[in-house]
Each structure stands twice: as structure tokens, then as C-alpha cells.
Design a protein around this nucleic acid. Structure first.
Lengths: 329, 329
DNA sequence: TTTTAGCACTTGTCAAGGAAAAGTGCTAAA
DNA sequence: TTTAGCACTTTTCCTTGACAAGTGCTAAAA
């Protein structure tokens, strides 16, 4: 258990370091707090012993450790009210009645990315939670047609495919079979159902049934497992901890592209705002992911803000809270 | 006009520098060519006077200038045959009969990006060349519906919108009006036509005509001007000329995102493979864009490979040539 | 018992200097 | 026309020393 003063010092160091990423010395702290630098040094030594602070070298100032950030977020941080200007910018997006929910979220996270200089992410619900709702086809020309897949959560994707010597009627027959027999199936199980429930039947209706089955099979397996949208990826380059370290950037950018790994951030099961600092997330030991689930009607998903460990936790948590409430309202 | 020997020396320097980005000295060249380093130095001096070579400082070896690369590409480069392994990888993609053309192109450019470590781009035809072919709507639930837009070039996009107190019949009536009256219109003029030809009419059919008009207007103006796909963006980080210079990276990444600027690379009007070195392109003075148009049926577009100025020109041109032929076959 | 003044000590940063390596341009001879 | 040779330039790398920032510890003060 930390003393009142230790809490105060730790909070000051974290906040100073977040503002300006240079190690914090005892002198500056002693000015704010009512005691000498020597006292602060003693306390800092204690905080370091507890693993909450670190030094970059024997005689440098202190820097928060991962545990230090953790402690700050859990015990010291005071949520920051959003300022009027930021709120106004977001309201502009939320007020737009014509936008579908997913567009509202995407657009507002774009705004947040610009105002905070962090990367933002929206994730739809996982593929096993998305049930096939409807398949439609639109003929493009005599060889190509576009298949549109809609899930019950409102996730829509389309893909254009090529068919040889298959008549439109045959395709439509197949589609109506799919719509009648396997809607309601989790999207990641559609492939299997297609094989066992559709494939045996369409042979009776369709000459080129092998080809047709293959094409539809691929359309469904190519269906993105989880709708995912990354905004402001390049903001990562603005953060000093990354802009001096190409290897870090490569890693973070690659992780943002490997959608599988990113989706791991959505493992929490309650509805609060979650903070994953450094090694607590799967992206990089130098980033923090702050995220929360949302649910409105049957649409649900996760929104996340990704920045350096030295993130403005208080502002971001406030923002995310505001976002969540506005989405769900 | 350069002498035979000067050509030989310039070619050697460019190719050596492409292999390994350090200034090339007279000694290494004199070993390959049959004369002393002093002679090579004299010739290098002449090539520098002609603006084809540069020095990084008074006593460094030589580096090709932009004009030097230009001269190399125009006069010295010998096209390189593709190796069997690369060809095999691409054939795997081209052989797949079920893929629509645009998927074949995207997938093969992804393969190329991986094998060359360069960024690749596909651009569809420009918006004024894309004529509206068909609009369809799929109701999602009682508030949302998905609008699908198809152009004559096979460019398909979908967008989900929210409508309040508008019946499905009203929407379908509007869509059928659009399909009857303004298909065949260039996609960038649809907004105007909507205003002058649809808006005045739908008042008669639709109660909430103002809202409906607004929504459709936005769907069409949000339609991406030009279908565009960037593959292997992160490969840029592998190039030494960028990986030591964050500002360059920021610029290139931002340009790749500002799709407007990227589309400028598609200004050429014939069908050859074009090479835009450094300042000849709109992306960055340190990159080269190699591109070519393709046309198959009514689908057309441009494929491009983007890398450092110090690019393997001979290999890339060969690859692009192979790609073009395979697409058009 | 807690706080603080004081001081020795450590480390990073910056500028200056020097040696070695790479490569050039020029001169004079082949 | 080519080449050997050499003086010269610049970069890179290492060392050195001075300075600043900050620590930990000790001993005195509160």
C-alpha cells in the first residue's frame, strides 16, 4: 500500500512523462509537492523498489514502468471531462440521421483519431456470432455476377465471381436454396453446411453444380471473419517512441494488418472500458490499447484506441465512455 | 552522345548501386572493365558533367542522378526474363478460373509485392469513364437498407443507409426511376442528374421525398471516384532509403492514402509500360513508379509498382509486361 | 522519527581533435 | 590516350574532456 504522498508523486511523474517523454527528476516534483528534493528522492526509491518506476540509467530521472501505468490507471487517474470543441466535432457526426450505425462509428473514430493523434479501430462481432441472413446475386454480364451476403448483425459484403456455362436461373435456384435452407447459420459454419446440405441437392437442378458449389464455397470462406476498420494508422508515426524506431513501426503496422491478431483484443467479456498496457495486449510492448464493447439493437462490436504506452489515459477513457453512451443511446 | 565505354561504366554503376546502395568508386569498376581506375575516373568525371552521375561529397564514389536512372532505363537496361519460380507463383493465380478479373489482378499484385518487396497498386478506370449500370437495394431491417451500385466497368460498391418512415415500396419506386432514367450516366454526374431529373419527380410518389433524395445523393457522391487498391504498403519500410527517414515515410504513406494524388499516376495515354522516376511522379522525389494500363473486355485500369528510385528496373518492367499480357489474354 | 542540506558519484550529451579509410582530381610520364 | 602516383578532401570512428542532470547516502536539523 502506498502512502498519500507516494500516490501523489507517482501521479505527478506519470502525468509529467505523458506530457513530455523525458525522465522526471526529483527537483521538479519537489517544487509541486511541499517537501525537498531529497525527500522526493527517498520516495522515488521506494516506488522503484515496488516496481512502479524505472530509471533509464543510474543517474537519470524516473520513468513509469508498465506496473506504474497500471497502478495509475487503476488508482490515480481522474477522468477528464471532454472539452466543448471536441464534443462539438463528435456531435456533428452523431447528429447525422442518415448514417447507418456502422458509418457513424467509423466517422466518429476518424474524428477521434485526428484529434488525439492515435490510431482507432472498430471491430464487428465475431464470425460465429454473425448468422447468415440473406444472399443475393446481381448479374453483371454474361460471365460475372456479384454475390451479396448479409448477416443478422448488419455486416454486408459483396464479391464478384466468374461463372462459365451456368444460366442465371440455375444460380438463382441455388441462391434460393441457400436462403431457404441455411440462413441462420453462423457465418463460419456456412461452408460446412454448403457441403452437406446444398451440394448433394443442387446436382439435381444444375448442370455445372460442381463449379457452382466451389464458387459459393469460396465466397463464404473469403467472407471476412470479423468486420474490422482501422483509422489513422499513420498517426503511429507521430509518436516519438515509434518515430525513432523503424523496427517498432514495422511490428505495429504488421500487427494492424494481420487482422487475426488484432481481434485478440476483443477477449473481454463485460461491458466496461478496458485498458491493456504494453505486454497486456497482443500488438506491441510499447503500445496501449483502450477499448470497450458496444451494443445497440442487434449490432455489436468493439471500439478501440491504440497509442503509445505514454497515452493520455484520462482523456481517452473519457472519450471512449462518451462514444459508447452515444452509440447505445 | 556517350561513348561505348561511358555507357558501359554508367550501366555498371547503376546496377551496382541498385544491388547495394553505397556510392560506387572507380576501383571496383576498373576491375570489371579493362582499364585502370584513373581512366574510369576521367570517364566518371565526364558522366558527372553530363548530369548522369552525382557525388555525395567531394571524395565519395558516384551515385546515379535522376537523369542517370532515366538514361539507364531508356538506353542501357536489358529486360530480364522472369525466373521459373516467380512465374509459377503468378501462374497459380492466373490459372484460377473462378476468380473475377479484378481479384486475379489484386491477388497477383499481392504476390508481386511479396516477391519484390515493393508496394503495388491497381487503379480502376476514372469515375467519368464509369457509367452507372444498375442500382439495387436490399432491405436489412425496418430502418436500414443496403444500396448496391454497379457500373458498366464492373466496379461494384455497397453502402448501408438509414431511412425513417419510408416504405420499401417507395424506395423501390425511386430505385426503378433511377434505373430507368439515369443509367448510362457517368458516375460523377449522377448527383446532378439526381437533382434535376429524379428529385422533381419523386415528390409525386414518395412522402419523405426530401429525405430519400438526400440519402441517395450521398450514396452516389460517396461512391469512390476510382477503384483503388494498394498492396504491400509496409514494404516501403524495408527499403533503406526510407527506413532511416521517418519524414519520407510519412510523406509516402500519406500520399498512398490521399487517393486523389495517387491517381495522377494514371495520366499516360498509350499502352506501354511507363517509368516515372523521382520528380517525374507525384508521390515522392525518392520513389519510382512503374506502371502500365490494361484493358480486357470493358474492364480497364492501371497497375503500378512503387519502390525506391534504386529499383530493380529490369526485373520490374519484365514482371509488369508479363502481368499485362496475362491479364489481356 | 522524519526531513533536509550537502556532497560524492554516475551517466548522458556535446564539441573538439585525431587517425584511418575511401575515393577524388590533377600532373607527368608511358 | 592511358596510367601511375600523389596530394587533398571528406566521412567515420574513437577518444577526450567539460558540463549538466540527477541519484544515493550521510549526517545534521526539526
Amino acid at each position: 500500500m502506498l502512502s498519500e504522498r507516494q500516490n501523489k508523486i507517482l501521479k505527478l511523474i506519470v502525468e509529467k512523462y505523458i506530457k513530455n517523454p523525458v525522465p522526471v527528476g526529483s527537483k521538479v516534483i519537489s517544487k509541486t509537492i511541499n517537501c525537498s528534493s531529497a525527500t522526493v528522492r527517498n520516495e522515488m526509491g521506494e516506488l522503484e523498489k515496488q516496481g512502479l518506476l524505472e530509471k533509464t540509467h543510474t543517474s537519470s530521472g524516473r520513468v513509469p514502468s508498465e506496473a506504474g501505468y497500471r497502478y495509475y490507471v487503476d488508482n490515480l487517474m481522474e477522468l477528464k471531462k471532454m472539452n466543448g470543441e471536441d464534443m462539438l466535432k463528435l456531435q456533428m457526426v452523431f447528429r447525422n440521421q442518415q448514417l447507418a450505425l456502422s458509418d457513424v462509428i467509423t466517422k466518429s473514430l476518424q474524428v477521434i483519431s485526428d484529434m488525439m493523434n492515435y490510431t482507432t479501430v472498430v471491430l464487428g462481432s465475431k464470425s460465429h456470432e454473425n448468422l447468415l441472413k440473406k444472399v443475393e446475386v446481381i448479374p453483371i454480364d454474361d460471365e460475372n455476377l456479384t454475390v451479396i451476403i448479409v448477416t443478422d448483425k448488419g455486416h454486408v459484403e459483396h464479391k464478384t465471381i466468374k461463372l462459365k456455362d451456368v444460366s442465371l436461373e440455375e444460380v438463382e435456384k441455388t441462391v434460393s436454396l441457400i436462403n431457404n435452407l441455411i440462413t441462420g447459420t453462423p457465418i463460419d459454419e456456412v461452408g460446412k453446411k454448403l457441403e452437406f446440405e446444398i451440394k448433394p441437392i443442387i446436382g439435381n437442378y444444375v448442370k455445372q453444380h460442381e463449379q457452382l458449389y466451389n464458387v459459393f464455397y469460396h465466397v463464404f470462406t473469403d467472407f471476412t471473419n470479423q468486420e474490422i476498420n482501422v483509422m489513422g494508422r499513420n498517426k503511429m508515426l507521430e509518436q516519438p517512441e515509434f518515430s525513432t524506431n523503424i523496427e517498432k513501426i514495422k511490428n505495429v503496422f504488421n500487427k494492424l494488418d494481420e487482422k487475426e491478431i488484432l481481434s485478440n483484443i476483443e477477449e473481454d467479456d463485460d461491458n466496461n472500458i478496458k485498458v491493456y498496457i504494453g505486454n497486456e495486449n497482443n500488438i506491441d510492448s510499447d503500445v496501449t490499447v483502450i477499448q470497450t464493447k458496444f451494443k445497440k439493437g442487434n449490432e455489436e462490436g468493439t471500439i478501440a484506441i491504440i497509442g503509445p504506452k505514454r497515452m493520455e489515459y484520462d482523456r481517452v477513457v473519457g472519450l471512449l465512455d462518451y462514444m459508447k453512451k452515444n452509440i447505445e443511446r
